[in-house]
């Protein structure tokens, strides 16, 4: 049986404004510190969280982020889950392509965030919304 992931602590943040995106970044930074991620891994996680929180705001029409310190056996990490009830992503493969954007961005948000983390999952339904979950583990 696989070892279950234990949630040690967590916070939920609503995302409806620019200021909320900054708050999600700060929450991710605080939890990355307490999970003892290295400086580079903290920076990668916070940057990924910033991209995904902005996606939730701009493309999902707002939503919420859950940021948690998690443990799997001896390893700790930070998990961030972004949920919106927006239009969903019609073509996920396309949305994960570098440089492709449906909006005015650079098209690096989703594909770039994926490269910065250890685990990356998207579930999306057109008309229902999108959930993106990422985890960065200590080394």
């Amino acid at each position: 049986m696989p070892t279950p992931v234990v949630v040690e602590s967590g916070e939920i943040h609503e995302i409806h404004t620019d200021a909320d995106v900054v708050r999600v970044r700060q929450a991710a930074r605080t939890l990355a510190l307490s999970a003892k991620l290295s400086l580079v891994d903290q920076t990668k996680l916070v940057t990924a969280a910033s991209e995904l929180a902005r996606n939730t705001l701009v493309y999902g029409g707002g939503g919420r982020a859950t940021v948690e310190v998690v443990r799997l056996g001896p390893r700790r990490g930070v998990r961030a889950v972004f949920v919106d009830e927006g239009p969903g992503i019609p073509d996920l493969d396309l949305a994960l392509t570098d440089g492709w954007t449906s909006g005015s961005g650079m098209g690096l948000g989703l594909s770039g965030a994926r490269r910065l983390v250890d685990e990356f999952e998207v579930s999306t339904d057109v008309g229902t919304g999108t959930t993106v979950s990422v985890v960065k583990w200590t080394r």
Binding site: L39, V40, Q42, R115
Partner: peptide, 14 residues
Amino acid sequence: MRPAVAITLVELGL
């Protein structure tokens, strides 16, 4: 620019 920021930027694809 901080080194960790530079590393992250490059990996992000910028």
